[in-house]
């Protein structure tokens, strides 16, 4: 029962570890250079999954303030504000901030999203460079099977 509970409340960590290990296995064991890169991509994506799941909060929304919070419309009720701004009054930044009430639990944690944007970019860059290297290897050796390449190096000696 305890195990079941651990599985159900912490399933995100189990999933990320399983996916990550699939990627790691492909990176180490595959003979084909492109398959290794696919493994690398899976491996990095698993880490992104891990980070993003850290920032999840039960009942919270995306980390962007509500439109009403940032553009409070004086004198109008919440529903009327949607139909259009008739009034020209724009409250200054200080006025908005003074009336601003933000409940931290309403919004997801923004930091993991920022960090993972970086990790995604790094993943794309690494994958691109890896594919370029693979293409050059294919151009030079005529194969993307690691064993065949090593053999052709040996026979060249």
């Amino acid at each position: 029962m305890e195990l079941l509970e651990a599985l159900s409340t912490k399933f995100n960590y189990w999933i990320y570890i399983i996916i990550m290990m699939i990627g790691l296995y492909a990176m180490i064991s595959k003979n084909n250079l492109v398959k290794k890169l696919i493994g690398m991509s899976i491996f990095q994506t698993a880490i992104i999954l891990f980070y993003v799941s850290i920032g999840v909060k039960e009942g919270a929304t995306i980390p962007i303030l509500y439109h009403d919070q940032v553009h409070p419309s004086h004198g109008y009720s919440h529903h009327k504000a949607d139909t259009g701004h008739i009034e020209d009054h724009h409250p200054s930044h200080e006025e908005i901030v003074a009336n601003l009430l933000i409940e931290p639990d309403d919004f997801g944690n923004p930091l993991p999203h920022v960090l993972m944007l970086t990790a995604i970019v790094v993943g794309v860059a690494t994958l691109g460079v890896g594919l370029a290297l693979t293409q050059k290897i294919y151009r030079d050796f005529g194969s993307i099977e690691e064993s065949e390449i090593l053999e052709s190096i040996k026979s060249a000696k």
Partner: peptide, 14 residues
């Protein structure tokens, strides 16, 4: 979450 808007007037925290 709470200080982003007061400090930089950007509603999107990310």
């Amino acid at each position: 979450i709470t200080e982003t808007f007061p400090e930089s007037s950007v509603p999107n925290m990310v």
